[in-house]
Amino acid sequence: MEKTIMKNLLHCPVTATMEVIGGKWKLLIIYLISNDINRFGKMGMMLKNISKQMLTTQLRELENDGIIERKIYAEIPPRVEYFLTAKGNSLTPVIERLRDFGMEFLIPREEASVDQLHV
């Protein structure tokens, strides 16, 4: 039974999706870009604990998987911005639902914990 489950997970659409957007940073990067935070430096400031190397790696992987595209402007100094592709934009409803889940289930729990401290 366990071998059958593992065999099925290898060809599972959820597994395939997680290979593209899984990990600590990718969904957050996609969320930032979808909210017009699309410059490397600004993303680095918003994602406080990400190293420049990790941000670069995650952006490259998302670009290679067709989720984002990079646009280089012919300016001095050079300016680079990232945008969601059609494939990346298709993730927007999923990310919005995750945000809604957080607002509904996680934020009230945090507020309750803070309120209990003041009792």
Rank of each mutant, 00 (worst) to 15 (best):
N89D: 11
L84F: 05
E19M: 08
A86C: 01
K52A: 10
K71Y: 12
R60T: 10
N89A: 01
K26R: 14
D100M: 06
R99E: 10
G102T: 11
M18A: 08
L27Q: 05
I30M: 10
S90M: 12
K52P: 02
G102L: 06
L117Y: 10
M1W: 04
G22L: 04
F40H: 07
A112D: 03
P78D: 03
E111N: 12
M54R: 09
N38S: 15
L47P: 05
L27Y: 11
T92D: 07
R60A: 14
L59Q: 01
P93Q: 05
F40E: 08
K24Q: 13
L47V: 00
G22T: 09
Y31S: 02
G44M: 02
K42P: 01
T15L: 02
F83M: 00
E111V: 13
L32N: 09
I33G: 06
S113E: 11
E69C: 09
Q53P: 03
E81A: 12
E96G: 08
I29Q: 06
A74I: 05
E63M: 14
K71G: 02
H11A: 13
V114Q: 12
M103Y: 09
M54I: 06
M6C: 03
E96S: 10
Y31W: 13
K87N: 09
L84R: 00
E111G: 04
E111S: 03
I30D: 01
D100Y: 08
P77S: 02
M1Q: 13
A86Q: 07
E104S: 11
D100A: 09
E63I: 03
Y82L: 00
K42V: 02
